[in-house]
Amino acid sequence: MMRVLECKACGQRSFYDKSQCLDCGNDEFLCENPGTGQVISVSTVHVTPEGVREPNRLGLASFPGDANIIAQIGDSVSSGDDVVLKGGHELRDGRDGIVQGARLLPADG
């Protein structure tokens, strides 16, 4: 399960590592379950870097606490769908070796 960072001071959430909260500057975070998000936009990318699947379907999803993420999505995911992040997927196999991580998949899947 992928985790989301939650600022201890203001509650702002983010999926991206940072040393300070972008909103209040606090430097202490909790690691929380992101819960269920909703897909805001989708793009199917046909020109991909070495070691990345082609086409690479990507989705922008918004999770509770205004935490947004762009991640690979499953073939059946569309804009407006409810999704969760599930780890253990091979995201790329390029010059840095195999990278595994989370994809956005249907919440009811």
């Binding site: 936009s41 793009s43 990318v45 762009i70 990278v99 991580g101």
Partner: peptide, 17 residues
């Protein structure tokens, strides 16, 4: 980067939105 995202990927998502 780990997700295979490129600059056109961001633009595609923004255009769709």
């Amino acid at each position: 980067y780990n997700q295979g995202i490129t600059l056109p990927s961001f633009a595609g998502l923004a255009a769709n939105r």
